[in-house]
Design a binder for these strands. Structure first.
Lengths: 112, 112
DNA sequence: AAAACATACCTAAGAATCTTATGTATGTTT
DNA sequence: AAACATACATAAGATTCTTAGGTATGTTTT
């Protein structure tokens, strides 16, 4: 994902947050959505995304809803109850990380 | 580094920013400093830090100044000119990443 | 003075995450 | 017909981190 990797490890969080907001999405849609939301600055590669989706499903955080649109299969993913709880936790972790980075990047400034 | 890893890939940036602000630091000091600045929330492990310091040195981004204090050796690291330029770039990338994450985490809110 | 803790360096195996490259298949546009 | 877009997928390799050690000296506690 993302050209210039300062940021490994945030892909699962991004995916789950999107599913949390949109109900259900399919893989290709996620790649388009992230690119659109960030004005092309973040690019998720499919080679990173699909394995993550499979992993999250294996962990019981996502479920799949298979559909056929225009004679092509689509796999809609959505959060399980366990996945919703995990999303809350991951978002909390991400906000903590960002706050910590703000403190490190802006020392001496009241970060609050 | 950091217990709860949403965030791989930011260790080099953190290290170089600290060296940029403090002139020179030694490894153990960096682990203490990060823990102090973030009130114990970010913990850099030595198993992660030392290989990074060696890698940055090999890339010509850091130089070393060996000293002996209390009969123990200390390796003070400091940024080269190349390292200073790279730090500017890494900090820019990190700020972009944080901004992009803000947009993703807070959709529909004017992030500016 | 022995034990425990802190300082200060280091490496190596393995796990986790991503990049790059590639593959399949269908539909749409040039 | 060729190129592009949609939609899925995997696999080799690179990078980054965790975990678990190891060495050595100085300081504090028992």
């Amino acid at each position: 994902m993302i050209k210039n990797s300062v940021y490994k490890g945030s892909l699962s969080t991004i995916v789950m947050k999107l599913l949390n907001d949109n109900g259900q999405m399919y893989g290709y849609q996620i790649t388009r959505e992230v690119e659109e939301i960030t004005a092309g600055k973040l690019k998720i590669t499919e080679g990173a995304l699909y394995p993550v989706l499979h992993k999250l499903e294996a962990q019981g955080l996502l479920n799949v809803n298979m559909e056929k649109v225009n004679n092509r299969p689509r796999k809609y993913y959505f959060l399980t109850e366990k996945g919703k709880k995990e999303t809350v936790s991951l978002l909390s972790d991400m906000r903590s990380f960002i706050q910590n980075m703000e403190v490190l990047l802006n020392p001496g400034i009241s970060n609050g």
